[in-house]
């Protein structure tokens, strides 16, 4: 399946998804993050929690994606990914489009083809968000403004990708390397393949 047909498939799936108001979505996520910041006080710990939440979402999302992709007439054979490049395309073009309705680009493959980047021009999670400026000492949540620079506001994405790919036997590590909230011109999520897990149940469960 070529890159453009994946984009089309993503578009088709997106049109069938039930929609939620984007502002409601952004504000809900915003209150979730601020609540975590208030509870944990340490931005690093907040990042971990967001990743964990995302992971739980991801392990469910991937099933929905695969089942709906089947229904959309793509067939199991065409959703099969031959290599990591294919996987990356599906995550970006189908996954992000289907669940968020945004356009994601893939690029920056490493020499050994084991890591790539997903670029997001727009980020529906961070609408309205402005991180408190550094050195904003009287910031009310206990954590200093300087510390909040370490907060990865959209770390949920990392968890989702990690969780989703884990379900299809790909152990990956995700990282937000560029963030529009921190003044970069676009968002970049770096995904690195750690290992391909062996398929199926263990030997004990094999049929005689």
């Amino acid at each position: 399946m070529s890159s453009s047909s994946k984009a089309q498939a993503g578009q088709a799936l997106w049109s069938k998804m039930p929609k939620a108001n984007a502002e409601l979505f952004a504000l809900t996520y915003g209150s979730l993050v601020t609540e975590l910041v208030r509870d944990y006080e340490d931005p690093i710990e907040v990042n971990t929690q967001l990743d964990r939440i995302g992971h739980s979402i991801g392990v469910r999302c991937v099933d929905e994606l695969l089942s709906k992709a089947d229904l959309a007439g793509l067939g199991a054979s065409s959703t099969m990914c031959a290599n990591l490049r294919d996987t990356a395309e599906v995550v970006a073009k189908v996954g992000f489009r289907m669940f968020l309705g945004i356009q994601a680009e893939v690029g920056g493959f490493s020499q050994d083809q084991r890591s790539f980047s997903i670029y997001l021009q727009e980020n529906p999670l961070s609408t309205f968000v402005e991180l408190p400026a550094a050195g904003d000492d009287d910031y009310q949540y206990g954590a200093g403004g300087d510390d909040l620079r370490k907060l990865k506001y959209s770390n949920l994405y990392c968890g989702v990708i990690r969780g989703a790919l884990e379900q299809v036997n790909l152990k990956v590590e995700c990282n937000i390397v560029r963030d529009t909230l921190k003044g970069d011109e676009l968002n970049e999520i770096r995904v690195e393949l750690k290992e391909v897990l062996s398929d199926g149940a263990g030997d004990d469960y094999k049929e005689e």
């Binding site: 952004a26 915003g30 993050v33 309205f128 968000v129 402005e130 009310q140």
Partner: peptide, 10 residues
């Protein structure tokens, strides 16, 4: 209004 939508602004 935009500012008050920022989750970091109380």
């Amino acid at each position: 209004v935009k500012l008050s939508m920022n989750p970091f602004y109380k």
